[in-house]
């Protein structure tokens, strides 16, 4: 704490140096991945209907399901699991890194 600005005010978009900055970085990356594949895909699907990509998305099949149905119904839940997994691995790493660093400064 001694190294930090004592007047720091918590703000997601202005994180503190150190652990918080690393944490916010991975949070924003995960949120972008979450939003693009969930909502970006639906918007793409809606606006490309009847055109090349749209036909491809509804025309191709995977496990018998049209690609868009498979993507939303089966891949998205899996994608969310992957995002949580990536987040946890990364947080485990930065937690280990910053606690080692902290211990050394105290030494």
């Amino acid at each position: 704490m001694s190294r930090q600005d004592p007047r720091y005010h918590v703000n997601l978009f202005r994180p503190k140096e150190g652990h918080m900055k690393d944490e916010v970085l991975i949070i924003l990356i995960v949120l972008i991945g979450w939003a693009t594949l969930t909502f970006g895909f639906q918007v793409l699907l809606a606006f490309s209907r009847g055109r090349g990509i749209g036909d491809l998305l509804t025309g191709l099949t995977l496990f018998g399901l049209p690609l868009h149905f498979w993507f939303t119904g089966q891949f998205l839940p899996l994608w969310f699991i992957i995002l949580c997994l990536v987040f946890n691995v990364y947080i485990d790493r930065i937690t280990a890194y910053h606690s080692r660093k902290r211990d050394r400064t105290y030494d």
Binding site: Q4, H9, K16, H19, M20
Partner: peptide, 9 residues
């Protein structure tokens, strides 16, 4: 700042 977001500072 110190507890919720600063536990590893």
């Amino acid at each position: 700042a110190s507890e919720v977001h600063g536990h590893l500072d």
